[in-house]
Design a binder for these strands. Structure first.
Lengths: 346, 346
DNA sequence: ATGAAAGCGCTAACAA
DNA sequence: TTGTTAGCGCTTTCAT
């Protein structure tokens, strides 16, 4: 059980003071290249890695980023085990970006709706002293959490939040995505395109619908209100909306669903009526969770860039902590469009 | 930006010394109930939460558990986005268990095959000073990592490792699972049951096969070597094995596949021959990753208890750090059997 | 350009 | 049963 290597050992090995080693480690100024070299050699030779606990105690960074996710939502996703991959994607984007900069990302589950959110968050921060906090929906819009963070003077990023406010706002352009989804169908020759909205409680629902409308209008097509179904992101609401479309004298030949669940619901509805996709209905959904790859046919979907958004959040927070000024207070991350069989050969 | 609350503030508030507060926080002895009460009130009033960095500096626990996953495997899983949910399940089991005890779990990706594994692991440990380390396959059997941990005197758990060695070995009973899968098919009335093995490089492959053989033998059925196909966990190997079965004069009416990929491959093979499951072939696969829920039909599968194993690992490490003696050095976690349409109505 | 001193928040070991 | 002392490993001052 060897004693761990500390900064002292490095200093002794290189024949300099603690302070000089510290300067080298932190890329500080005022060190002759020659000395710097010698210290680095000692570091390498001894396999020295600074203790982040000690660094933090010394008044420097903690090299920790705290990511807050909604407890119920996350656990429910895990329990179902159906591949809701928010957490996976966050890790992919956040962890890898953090690792790039010597940072670590710590996950924490918090009840948004509980009245002691503030206490939960405060406790996590007191224990960890993170250099920054990443908020995911629905925390991204929680005023209690945001106010606390502001009060604490801790840099934070709000992922997927469209409301203005302090902290870095990391989003995708939902309006543009709604337009891209619709354009894809228009390009395939469709003109009667249905749209199923998300819940009004989410600002992104309106944005996605706006994109649809813009795409239609730009091609000189009138907006037919009968082709706009009201959903709330649930499978059931998708089913209801699609069934209404089917009752129309002239049902849509293509559909944009505001999330995967509703897209799959629509597919199920037409299947139960003996219809198929893409022959009778081309479908584009939003989010691109794993499930849409396994439906028959697999669904074309707008890819929500969760990993990229989390990576961007991490990058900004790390730069903020490093003292970097003039950082954008909002970043729009490009979305993707995964084309699959539900929109092939129109 | 309020100054954070430290142990000093609590001490002042309660009118006692730092040490007494420390004792209360750590449930130490030698504190009058009355004083303890007073301190707790001060803690609650001030919303005090100890800094784990400072606790660790003071020579106590770091309240951190380090979980090591294979870099390539993990990233590949994320990249594909097909819901390989090892990480998700680990978080679910590990994080929740850790939270229960005031611990945090930090994830780290490490290249098993790299020749600087040791350096990578050592660096993570030096930086974090975790109280314990959780190893997942293939790290669980990596002698470089294991030796390092032993040398460091750090408690660690090896998940899914069947080889003997130091550290806590957390496993599921793969032999029993192989038997349970086979028994399930036997109970349905099948007698010609095929088996596709995993790669010989994994000890679990042999265990699963043994379970199959035992189940067959116990029912007085002979082991037909022609019904044992050699696979290596890949989709392709599953395809090859199933195709060989189909060429038999008397093909199997049921199948146990040593993982989901090969189970899905078998399903694909029979579908391409105009056959269906479960009518022509009842299928049970191993692992129960999300994808088997979305095949047609969904596959019955042995559920690998990843969350439970990680939770158990966390529990043991935390207890070990707490000084708990007589802990088991091996724990077998019960597996599950998720029955789905691929084995209904035989 | 470098080193010495003080202190971060906490816990061990010791004394009272 | 309590309080006092001395660190833990590092980074800030501030000297030199």
């Amino acid at each position: 059980m060897r004693r761990p290597v500390t900064i002292k050992h490095v200093a002794a090995e290189a024949g300099v003071s603690l302070q000089t080693v510290s300067r080298v480690i932190n890329n500080g100024p005022n060190v002759r290249p020659e000395v710097r070299e010698r210290v680095n050699e000692a570091v390498a030779k001894l396999g020295y890695v600074p203790s982040i606990a000690a660094q933090r105690m010394g008044g420097s960074r903690s090299w920790l980023l705290l990511a807050l996710n909604d407890r119920d939502r996350t656990i429910e996703g895990w329990r179902l085990g159906e591949g809701t991959d928010w957490v996976d994607k966050m890790l992919m984007g956040g962890m890898l970006e953090c690792a790039e900069h010597g940072y670590r990302m710590i996950f924490e589950l918090v009840d948004t709706h509980s009245n002691h959110v503030e206490r939960e968050v405060r406790a996590a921060i007191s224990a960890l002293h993170p250099d920054g906090v990443i908020l995911t929906p629905p925390h991204s819009d929680n005023p209690l959490i945001i106010d606390l963070l502001v009060q604490l003077g801790l840099p934070f990023a709000r992922i997927g939040s469209v409301v203005d406010g302090p902290g870095f706002a990391i989003t995708m352009d939902d309006r543009a995505a709604g337009k891209a989804a619709t354009d894809h169908l228009l390009d395939l020759g469709h003109t009667r395109i249905g749209f199923i909205t998300g819940s009004d409680e989410w600002a992104i629902s309106g944005a996605r619908l706006d994109g649809y409308k813009q795409a239609m209008t730009e091609r000189g097509l009138a907006i037919d209100e009968a082709l706009i179904g009201r959903g709330d992101f649930s499978f059931e609401s998708g089913t209801a909306a699609m069934e209404a479309f089917c009752e129309l004298a002239e049902p849509p030949t293509a559909l944009v669903a505001s999330n995967d669940q509703m897209g799959l619901a629509a597919l199920r509805v037409i299947n139960s009526r003996g219809l198929k996709s893409p022959e009778n209905l081309a479908i584009v959904s939003f989010d691109d969770t794993p499930i849409v790859k396994f439906s028959h046919p697999p669904l074309t979907a707008i890819v929500q860039p969760i990993a990229a958004m989390t990576a961007e959040a991490s990058r900004l927070l790390i730069r903020a902590k490093a003292g970097d000024a003039d950082l954008p207070d909002a970043v729009v991350v490009p979305f993707g469009l995964a084309i699959r069989d539900s929109t092939r050969r129109a």
